[in-house]
């Protein structure tokens, strides 16, 4: 089982990387871009078990280490 965790800055936190990418896209002529947020992707391979249990476990990993709740939020996808 693979857990994909995407970690991004909270909407309230200024993301200068996202802003820079946004501007670069516009300079290339991509006009329809409303907002860009930059984040990181963490792939975790897990041993067996149920999807629900895996999600719970990864949730704990996020809270303890993978994301900093003060500035970041996370989304978990189990495949």
């Amino acid at each position: 089982m693979i857990a994909r965790v995407s970690v991004t800055l909270k909407p309230s936190i200024l993301d200068p990387q996202g802003t820079t990418i946004h501007q670069a896209l516009e300079s290339l002529g991509f006009k329809g871009v409303k907002r860009v947020r930059m984040g990181k992707l963490i792939e975790i391979e897990l041993q067996g078990g149920s999807k629900a249990a895996a999600k719970k476990e990864v949730e704990r990993m996020c809270q303890k280490l993978l994301a900093n709740p003060i500035v970041e939020m996370y989304r978990i996808e189990i495949k």
Binding site: L9, I13, P16, Q17, V71
Partner: peptide
């Protein structure tokens, strides 16, 4: 308390 972000200048 708090956290560090990247410098605004990147």
């Amino acid at each position: 308390p708090g956290a560090m972000l990247r410098n605004t200048s990147l």
